[in-house]
Design a binder for these strands. Structure first.
Length: 116
DNA sequence: TGTTTGACTGGGA
DNA sequence: CTCCCAGCCAAAC
């Protein structure tokens, strides 16, 4: 089963569904989500979608960082330190706005959701 | 209806 | 190694 998601929904909703599947203590990148949804494109759209996810409380946007593991979206949270704080509570190490051992905690939807 | 922007990414200089 | 540029595509103006 390659698609646990409802592709009939809007692009934004597709992004939300993937983000909701990210386990606690794990992180992924905008590009990874974009790659899983519409094949290697619109990484920016994922970020744009997250911007509209504020109204939703089920979308752990703090688990989505850029390809290097930097919390680029922290400034869009309620408070700048909110994003890092949430990740730290989940057992991650944040230093200099960046996730330590990012590759170790990286959660790739293309892998995690296709092999399942 | 056309232009600008953006929580990104990869490649080149 | 750091800095710059082009591509990506939907929403906002």
């Amino acid at each position: 089963m390659a698609t646990v998601l409802n592709k009939n929904k809007d692009f934004f909703e597709q992004v939300y569904q993937v983000v909701r599947l990210i386990p606690s203590g794990r992180v992924t990148s905008y590009g990874a989500i974009a790659n899983y949804l519409s094949a290697k494109s619109a990484a920016r759209m994922v970020g744009w979608a997250m911007n509209a996810s504020h109204k939703l409380d089920d979308v752990p946007a703090h688990r989505v960082v850029n390809r290097v593991g930097i919390l680029t979206g922290k400034l869009h949270f309620e408070t700048p330190h909110k994003m890092a704080a949430l990740l730290i509570l989940e057992g991650l190490l944040i230093q200099n706005n960046q996730v330590i051992n990012f590759n170790k905690h990286f959660w790739d939807p293309t892998i995690e959701l296709s092999l399942g």
